[in-house]
């Protein structure tokens, strides 16, 4: 499903350069639950952003279902993010101006779903994450764990092929962290491919495979 070949990512200008990724190559098959681990600043988040089409590698190739992603136009890239990828961020990034339901509807709106269908799908997802009674709430009225569950619901709303989670439990207490992991495992069992970035080895063990990165290289 995913093939990464000799990928490098360099930040900064010519004089002060930081190599976040240094010739990384790997493959991820459909239905896998992969954890990417490593110390802070080792390049794991950079890799995740590139996988999600939010950033571009400096060199190398990234294929998603045999399509080379960095050759996509801006519009195709937006469509790729919309239909193929779901993001879960450490800081949740829910939109405060919107109600929970409206937050979940976000990717569906850009996908051209009609309002009624959108609302129906959002309700289903609320039920899935066990927050059907919080549909009208704004994010600030929810706990951290609830916000992350909503973020996951938003990420999977448009039936993505790949769910990318960047430290999904990083801002949560242990109990809420476990609930999120349970939810992710459940989604993986249902066939969703998940790539999760974490520096917590205990959490990484929950995944079916671990890719460890150190100084921008897979070790």
């Amino acid at each position: 499903m995913i093939r990464v070949e000799n990928m490098t990512k360099i930040y900064g200008a010519e004089q002060v350069q930081t190599k976040a990724l240094d010739g990384v190559s790997f493959q991820i098959e459909e239905g896998e639950f992969v954890a990417i681990t490593g110390k802070s600043g080792c390049g794991k988040s950079s890799l995740l952003h590139i996988l999600g089409g939010m950033d571009m590698q400096t060199s190398g190739h990234y294929f998603f279902e045999e399509t080379e992603v960095n050759k996509l136009s801006d519009k195709e890239m937006a469509e790729f993010r919309n239909r193929k990828i779901g993001f879960v961020f450490q800081a949740f990034y829910l939109l405060e101006e919107f109600q929970t339901l409206q937050n979940i509807e976000l990717p569906l709106g850009y996908s051209g779903w009609k309002s009624g269908k959108r609302r129906k799908r959002a309700m289903e997802l609320l039920q899935l994450v066990g927050l059907s009674h919080k549909g009208r709430n704004h994010p600030s009225q929810l706990s951290g764990g609830e916000q992350q569950r909503i973020a996951i619901a938003r990420a999977i709303a448009n039936y993505p092929k790949l769910l990318l989670a960047d430290e999904p439990t990083g801002n949560l207490d242990k109990e809420n962290g476990e609930r999120i992991m349970e939810l992710l495992k459940r989604l993986n069992k249902e066939g969703l491919t998940i790539v999760m970035v974490t520096h917590d080895l205990e959490l990484a063990k929950e995944a079916s495979r671990i890719i460890h990165i150190s100084d921008g290289k897979i070790v």
Binding site: G52, K75, R81, N82, E97, Y110
Partner: peptide
């Protein structure tokens, strides 16, 4: 103040 909102919209498939 709403930077992240714009970025999230882009991350979830909005075009510029």
């Amino acid at each position: 103040k709403r930077r992240n909102g714009v970025a999230i919209s882009l991350a979830y498939g909005a075009t510029k």
